[in-house]
């Protein structure tokens, strides 16, 4: 029995990253890869999922699923496929879904997996997972027939090989929608930035206090061919950006990450620590970020950034990749 690795995320890019990793793992044990998706799949969609690594696509009839329905879809797919490993994208919805699926399916579960090892029949699944908010890594050996792992964005790479084929397995959801009545929704401002793949990231922390300060930050970003992002409190308290960098947000791997007014809490550093070079500006010499940076500037960012912009311009300095 070769078995199935299931993948699910309501976040389309993350779903492809998980598919890529599932494909690589599946090939080591001759297993199949199943993808759970919301709504009917047309033939071009199916071709795309196949190219990205899926053999089976478990599609619900409803195109929009709430958390409870995602749990239903994945749990049904686990039963139908006899899956041994389930990878779920670590978004807010995904983290809730993963814990519920694990509870419902009596599966082993660990969060924040970064490395996964399996063997035939899933008898010795193990994984390295971020521990203590990213301070360390724990390697776990799982004891249940099914192992559920949540995986953050940007951990694994997309695989895309056109020409592979997949088939749809329709899933009829058993459960009614969530008992919550949705009264209203208001969208957060969408910055439209493309953080994954950016060569430079300007990372705004709580030290950037006023919205108008973002003008100079954006000017600096354009000189460095960079995208602007932020730490979690800036995103949640100020609603300047929809995305944030960190354990619970996006993880980036740019050539340069320049932090402005970032304190350096581990939950945030996890999102930027794979950068090739980290430079940091903070007015507090004892800020934790300086232990995480290659070069730190102890200065008031409101005074330093305009000077840096002026020096970049007058010296005619440009990013190495342009």
């Amino acid at each position: 029995m070769p078995g199935v690795i299931l993948v699910s995320s309501e976040h389309p890019v993350l779903a492809l990253e998980l598919l890529g990793q599932a494909r690589r793992l599946a090939e080591t044990i001759d297993a199949k890869v199943g993808l759970c998706v919301a709504g009917a799949v047309d033939s071009s969609g199916l071709d795309s999922y196949a190219a990205h690594g899926a053999d089976l696509v478990y599609a619900s009839d409803d195109a929009v699923l709430d958390t409870c329905q995602w749990v239903d879809l994945i749990s049904s797919a686990i039963s139908a496929s006899e899956a041994g490993l389930v990878l779920i994208g670590a978004t807010k919805t995904g983290m809730e879904v993963a814990a519920r699926v694990a509870e419902r399916s009596d599966a082993s579960y660990a969060a924040w997996a970064v490395k996964i090892e399996i063997d035939a029949g899933f008898a010795a699944t193990s994984a390295s997972c971020m521990l203590y908010a990213g301070t360390g890594l724990a390697t776990y050996r799982f004891s249940r027939a099914v192992t559920v792992l949540s995986v953050a964005p940007g951990v694994f790479e997309v695989d895309d090989q056109p020409g592979r084929t997949a088939r749809v397995e329709p899933v009829v959801l058993k459960e009614q929608s969530s008992p919550l009545s949705v009264i209203g929704e208001r969208a957060k401002s969408n910055s439209g930035t493309r953080l994954q793949g950016a060569r430079a990231i300007i990372d705004v922390g709580r030290g950037v206090k006023d919205h108008e300060d973002l003008d100079m930050v954006r000017t600096l970003a354009s000189l460095l061919d960079g995208q602007v992002s932020c730490s979690r409190p800036v995103s949640s308290d100020r609603d300047w950006f929809a995305d944030w960098l960190g354990l619970s947000g996006v993880k980036v791997k740019p050539d340069l990450c320049l932090t402005l007014g970032v304190s350096g809490a581990i939950q945030h550093v996890v999102g930027i620590r794979d950068s090739r070079v980290i430079a940091s500006v903070n007015n507090d010499e004892n800020a934790a970020i300086f232990t995480q940076a290659d070069v730190g500037v102890v200065a008031d960012l409101n005074e330093f950034v305009p000077v840096l912009i002026e020096r970049l311009r007058s010296r005619g300095v440009t990013p190495a990749w342009l």
Binding site: S108, G136, L137, Y140, R273, G296
Partner: peptide, 30 residues
């Protein structure tokens, strides 16, 4: 309990930790 921990390690940061301070802003920018 659904797993056992085989090992736990810390993530070591190997950053250069250069610090620029106490000088003129333009000098530090340069």
């Amino acid at each position: 309990t659904t797993y056992s921990a085989l090992k736990e390690t810390g993530i070591v940061v190997n950053r250069q930790q250069n610090v620029l301070k106490d000088s003129d802003l333009a000098e530090m920018a340069d």
